[in-house]
């Protein structure tokens, strides 16, 4: 177990974390590249940039858009706050960052972290429940929509158990291993699944607008490519 734990905290963690960073960076770079490409080819170069910025910014503040599906939106908002704050600002993690990166920042008190951890787990369960019990979402959901929520809850649940070993019925090292490995798994999956919205989110509005800006003659080019140039209507 000790060796496995070492492996999970060592090479496995470094791999997943670097894959996370580079993978997200890749998304950003590719999006920027594609945006530039589309922009270069576009026949219509007019973009309502101000409006796009405003929309994007409004959507980055999810509280402004709670109107339909209020409870879902609220849970989702709280969930996001919790899962962002705890991993980065937990005292134990800050110590890790300081050790690994040489960077340190203030940590949240452990009590707050405890509460947020529980909130993360509870909201994850709530979100899952809402997904299952609402007819619309149930019919929409793919495998990853169901699987990612519990997966994200796992490191929080195990982390809570580790912070409170007195109430941990499981083996400490096993808990630790699950904690690290589930986080690693999330890191690896992030660039590959919908979790990549953490970096793609700011560009979605721009992208949606740009997709309406085609190159001049795109229609005829398609016709040519398909050999349908002379076809009657």
């Amino acid at each position: 177990m000790q060796a496995w734990l070492e492996w999970a905290r060592g090479p496995a963690f470094v791999f997943s974390f670097v894959f996370l960073l580079l993978g997200l960076l890749r998304h950003v770079a590719l999006t920027a590249w594609e945006v530039a490409h589309v922009w270069r080819r576009a026949g219509d170069k007019k973009l309502p940039l101000g409006k796009l910025l405003r929309t994007t910014f409004l959507w980055l503040l999810p509280l402004t858009r709670l109107r339909n599906r209020f409870w879902f939106g609220l849970t989702s908002f709280v969930f996001h706050i919790a899962i962002l704050v705890v991993p980065v600002f937990l005292a134990g993690h800050v110590a890790l960052w300081a050790r690994g990166l040489g960077l340190s920042w203030p940590a949240v008190p452990n009590a707050v972290a405890d509460v947020l951890t529980l909130v993360a787990v509870v909201t994850a369960v709530l979100l899952l429940a809402q997904r299952v019990f609402s007819r619309a979402t149930r019919s929409l959901s793919r495998f990853q929509d169901y699987a990612l929520l519990p997966l994200i809850a796992v490191p929080f649940a195990t982390g809570f158990l580790m912070m409170h070993p007195g109430s941990n019925p499981f083996d400490y090292q096993a808990t630790f291993f699950v904690h690290v490995m589930s986080a690693n798994l999330i890191f690896v999956l992030t660039p590959l699944t919908k979790l990549s919205h953490m970096v793609l989110m700011p560009s979605t509005q721009l992208v949606a607008e740009l997709a309406w800006h085609w190159p001049v003659d795109s229609g005829s080019a398609v016709g040519r490519a398909l050999g349908k140039e002379g076809d009657p209507v």
């Binding site: 060592g10 890790l96 050790r99 912070m163």
Partner: peptide, 15 residues
């Protein structure tokens, strides 16, 4: 006390 575990066990210091 209990919350201090992290001080030693949470020295999950890679390598």
């Amino acid at each position: 006390g209990e919350t201090s575990c992290g001080r030693c066990h949470h020295q999950n210091l890679p390598f």
